[in-house]
Design a binder for these strands. Structure first.
Lengths: 185, 185
DNA sequence: GTTGTATCTTCCACTGTGGAATGTCAAGAG
DNA sequence: CTCTTGACATTCCACAGTGGAAGATACAAC
């Protein structure tokens, strides 16, 4: 990794490390909770990026603790690299929606099977929407309690709410034919 | 690649090759037009998957023609592998939305810069929505003209319409602070 | 003819995914 | 006090996906 040039995932990790030094595991948890809903990442990747950041001198890794735990701390070079990344125009989003692939080839899938898939995915999205609503309620309660709140975090939550709402409406607008509940006409 | 076990991208290519034999370039174009909006893929990947499919005997590659062009034809084993894939439960979708990342760390981005990013991305989404609306109009005109239409393709288009609509509404609901149009309060 | 542009394929380095493998620590059961 | 179980924590690997460079060929325009 060229010093001062990081990818979006590595940059996010640097963002979290601005707050406080953390172990890899903690970074994984924080990342999952903060950006996991719109930025897919895996533990493998986080550990790899942290190692690469350490090699590039953008973070320093502390001594091995129990369970091989290492504490990562952002460096001045890391802060500079983060500033540089955050002021660059973000790329367009990428989406990969396997259910749509299966539905597009829907004529070749037995209807009953398709109905199962649709039901399972709808349930997942309903659960995610419910979770977002809880988060919204919690945030509003905090605001009422005098918490200053974070308008930026609220904007990302609002995106999640609108996205999941739209997806559920799409599910409910599917025709019975597509849904797999009647024989193809 | 184990015969009979293909990934979603390779399976989609097999899906297209059910219709007719095609060169790699043609597959790239068809894929881009049919699934590109909800299944990101690149030419490199398509060529690589086609080669792998040929190695696995799921497609046959014709003789090299002009410009090294090869024509790919699906085999019986390819059809079987496709059937197997299409009846498997699709995975959850993955989304990676760099703008949300930048916004979440918004406090560290100069407001004017943030406003540029937001405007540029909003414009792109507006253009995509306009394109989807044209596609919808064309499809409806075809239906009125007696075309049987494809309910499954319509379902994927409907998803695109709802998604882009929701995204635009989100853009328009952003507070001036987040949008970068006023100094942070 | 030559020159420029679009077509078509390949290759490479880097990034992302998913899961297996390995090991450590803490808490409760017996 | 030992044993088991489950949560914690990291690493590694094979495969998949991204983005762009490189190179070759065909075709059209001049």
């Amino acid at each position: 990794m060229a010093v001062g040039s990081v990818n979006a995932t590595a940059a996010s990790l640097l963002g979290f490390l601005h707050w406080t030094s953390m172990s890899g595991w903690d970074v994984v948890r924080v990342a999952e909770q903060t950006i996991g809903d719109f930025w897919s990442l895996t533990p493998s990747q986080v550990y790899r990026e942290l190692s690469a950041l350490a090699d590039a001198g953008l973070v320093t890794a502390g001594e091995r603790g129990s369970r091989d735990r290492r504490t990562f701390t952002i460096t001045e070079a890391g802060r500079t690299a983060f500033e540089k990344w955050v002021s660059r125009e973000p790329a367009a989003e990428t989406i990969r929606f396997p259910l749509l692939l299966t539905l597009l080839f829907g004529a070749r899938v037995p209807g009953a099977r398709r109905a199962e898939f649709v039901a399972a995915h709808r349930a997942r999205h309903a659960a995610t929407l419910a979770r977002y609503r809880e988060q919204l309620a919690a945030a509003q309660a905090a605001l009422n309690g005098g918490d200053p709140g974070d308008a930026f975090a609220m904007a990302t939550l609002d995106f999640g709410l609108r996205y999941e709402t739209a997806v559920l409406e799409w599910f409910d607008a599917l025709t019975p034919e597509v849904r797999g509940e009647v024989a193809p006409g």
